[in-house]
Amino acid sequence: MNENIILSSRVRLARNVDGVPFKGINSASIATRALNALREQGSYMMHSINSLTGLEQTRLVERHLISKELIDCQGSAIIRDDNKVSVMVGEEDHIREQCILPGLHLREAYAELREIDRAIGKEFKFAFNPSFGYLTSCLTNIGTGMRASVMMFLPALALTDSIGRCIGGITRLNMAVRGVYGEGSKAEGYVYQISNQKTLGISENDIVASVENVATHMVESELKAREALMQVDPEGLRDKILRSYGIICNCYTMSKSEFMELIAFVKLGVYYNILSCSDHAALEKIITDVQPASLCLGQGRRLDVGERDKVRASICAKIQQIVCRIGG
């Protein structure tokens, strides 16, 4: 049942090349060397941000393969074919390696990233100091340079107004809670990102364990809240879920924010066995496909908001092929 709550796990390592200033680097030359170092690690593709169109850049952000900051810095990205590993070059730090896996798999993501880090570390001497660990541009990343995060779908905690209290508790444990696209972003569709804040004076394994603990605790809280939500107003909740399902499959235009709200209730309906889903991966793909840049690229051209909302509604109609109503 965790899959319905923990959407994905991500581990990121920040690295800088020894002796090279933090700012104003030639990202293309570092990226080319990093790409060569990864040749034996799988099939990778290098993208220079300024060679991509605006839509292509945004699609990479929507898929969590690069950060918005990389676009501002006009850096480069090296992305593995399965979209699980990416390396950003020329962002706040010279090199940022990340591995993203579905579900709660932080340990596996870190183990995989360790190999990527080792391969890149053979090509470059990383800026490292025994006292401060891996040296980073910002003091908030120094030490391990590691950020371990989980993306969590927490609608019941939000709808029962318990999320504020949970966030308060989490921040006291040196964890950060952010929206779906990282710092400063909104928790759209009741999706929250929980990550470690402390990177110094703690080992990588302990960071992974602490984020895992918090995530497991949040899953328990969310499950309790889902139980409470159903107990308080079972008919109202069933009605809200079925209405959401009805609208999402039968409308002419749909904004992104409306979609994110409705799809959350559809997913809740699947959890409560009010709706059944025959293909979870296909449902997740629809959620990715209706994000603005992915939607335009799917149509092969830039669309204005009104056009996007109509195309989104037509894609949403396909949800009735994989999700159906159970019983009365």
Binding site: Y110, A111, R114, R118, G121, K125, F126, F128, N129, P130, S131, F132, G133, Y134, L139, T140, I142, G143, T144, M146, N174, K198, T199, L200, G201, I202, S203, E204, N205
Partner: peptide, 21 residues
């Protein structure tokens, strides 16, 4: 400054030549 931000001033994680997990 680091003690204020990170509640620590000394690295205890892995290094470039550390053994694997």
């Amino acid at each position: 400054i680091l003690r204020n931000i990170q509640s620590a001033a000394m690295h205890i994680g892995s290094g470039p030549n550390s053994e694997s997990v």
